[in-house]
Design a protein around this nucleic acid. Structure first.
Length: 452
RNA sequence: GCGGGCGUAGUUUAGUGGCAGAACGUGACCUUCCCAAGGUCGAGGUGGGAGUUCGAUUCUCCUCGCCCGCUCCA
């Protein structure tokens, strides 16, 4: 392993080059010269992303009795954004120091002097609206202005009563949602780290208020534990993760405690996930704006209470990036001819690997193709797989290593006689001969998949 | 939006005011080849526009686009 030799920017370049050349992620709108900071996912990227989202849903919704899923509109009532404060906070007046181009929020520039360079000249304040605006219906007017949601959370507050009613859930319980959000960021960048269109996986976990023995600290700690468990499952290197308690000064005004789950990306330690205790700020705000009652009836006391909320928030693309970085592994190997070479392996957890298995006929002789194609057709309903006949077997193993395929199945001339194939392990490079009739079972076992 | 950098095959790149080369990748064929780099053949390129010039990928201008930086918090 030569990770130590890499400078950080080298590693980032290697990841982006691999992502592009192998079909994980490529720049969007390319034939028209590209569109800044937009990225499209290729066949492997979408498999990885779906696997991450499915694992999250399975972990936090299916495997827990106290969390329920939902899926809201991207476009919601503008009143929601008024209540949440987004319309106000996302419409900042910004100005820039003419000397050093440092940018300030108009209402936060207390002195007349630039803190950075001491300059006294500033550009005129300009409106920076970081919410994407559009119109409902074909006629543009101020009255029908709507926004693309900048976060998924609000829908879960707004729909809290409906979900509680239909599930008959009792506190504490959570609502989970995965979906696209849109932010017209001033400064996007760093590959898929900060995007203008991205996906969030969020949970609003509703608990009894402190006066009803809600014990938010206990739930907060439990969620920290859940995030650690998730990181391990999805393949995020714990050595690269740091939990940072956000000081009262830096926290959002409504939050009593916020912990940033930060990741040491090659370009710096930056936020990966967030965990925030949001009190009852949001429900209260929506109650006020809508005039509706959003309380929950505490069955024990018979009292109506306004629940408090713990919010774990996960970025899908940031997860992908952290997983790609964590999985990247280089191994110096010496070939049979004594020449040095670097083998690149993406050591994804099996559960999120884009392809689980690659079927590789040793050569493209028709008799081998026939057997290999039959194996492929039998297995393809069970897990995602790749099938590759081009070039030498060694090259194909390398290719599968680079896209993180846990197992390669090789059909050779002996297979025609002994009805066995070689199963090769991505991480150990070890091989074993397995009977073709037992192959499916063997692989499901290896991959830890339940029998269907 | 502001400042800086940059646009040559899919990728990395060489080069020239006069036919644009290479490597890797890729396609076809040959090779019974289990851990990259065997042989033969092939496809594929100067972001766009205008100007200077006999002639521009090269020089000039414009344009388009990308990358990096400007507290954005997934």
């Amino acid at each position: 392993m030569v990770k130590g030799k890499n400078t950080n920017s080298d590693l980032m370049e290697k990841i982006t080059a691999l992502a592009r050349s192998r079909g994980f992620v490529f720049p969007g709108s390319e034939i028209y010269g590209g569109l800044a900071n937009s990225y499209d996912l290729g066949p492997l990227g979408i498999e990885l992303k779906r696997n991450i989202k499915n694992l999250w849903w399975k972990t936090f919704v299916h495997e827990r009795a106290d969390i329920f899923g939902m899926d809201a509109n991207v476009i919601m009532s503008t009143l929601i954004w008024e209540a949440s404060g987004h319309l106000k906070n996302f419409n900042d007046l910004l100005l820039e120091c003419k000397g050093c181009h440092t940018r300030y929020r108009a209402d936060e520039l207390e002195t007349e002097e630039c803190v950075n360079c001491g300059g006294k000249e500033f550009t005129k304040p300009a409106q920076f609206n970081t919410m994407f605006k559009t119109n409902l219906g074909p006629v543009e007017s101020k009255e029908n202005t709507v926004y693309l949601r900048p976060e998924t959370a609000q829908a879960m507050f707004v729909d809290f009563p409906e979900i509680q009613r239909t599930t008959r859930a009792k506190l504490p319980f959570g609502i989970a949602q995965i979906g696209k959000v849109f932010r017209n960021e001033i400064t996007p960048g760093n590959f898929i780290f900060r995007l203008r269109e991205f996906e969030q996986m969020e949970i609003e976990y509703f608990i009894a208020p402190p006066e009803s023995k809600g014990d938010w600290e206990k739930h907060f700690e439990a969620w920290l534990g859940e995030i650690r468990r998730w990181n391990k499952m999805v393949g995020i290197d714990s050595k690269l993760v740091e939990e940072v308690d956000i000081s009262a000064k830096e926290r959002a005004h409504y939050s009593e405690r916020t912990v940033d789950i930060e990741f040491k990306y090659p370009f710096g330690q930056k936020e990966l996930y967030g965990l925030a205790y949001r009190t009852n700020y949001d429900l209260k705000a929506h109650q006020k704006q809508s005039g509706k009652t959003l309380t929950y009836k505490d069955l024990k006391t018979g009292r109506e209470v306004l629940p408090h909320v713990i919010e774990p928030s996960f970025g899908v693309e940031r997860t992908m990036l952290a997983v790609l970085i964590s999985a990247y592994f280089e191994q110096e190997i010496t070939s049979a001819k004594g020449e040095k070479d670097t083998r690149v392996v993406m050591r994804f957890p099996k559960e999120i690997a884009p392809y689980k298995v690659a079927i590789l006929p040793l050569s493209d002789k028709p008799e081998l193709i026939k057997v290999a194609a039959k194996i492929r057709d039998e297995l393809k309903g069970h897990f995602s797989l790749d099938y590759d006949v081009t070039q030498s077997i060694g090259k194909r193993y390398r290719r599968q290593d680079e896209i993180g395929t846990p197992y390669c199945v090789t059909v050779d001339f002996d297979s025609l006689e002994d009805k066995k194939v070689t199963v090769r392990d991505r991480d150990t490079m070890e091989q074993e001969r397995i009977g073709i009739n037992k192959l499916g079972e063997h692989l499901e076992d290896k991959l830890g998949l339940q029998k269907q």
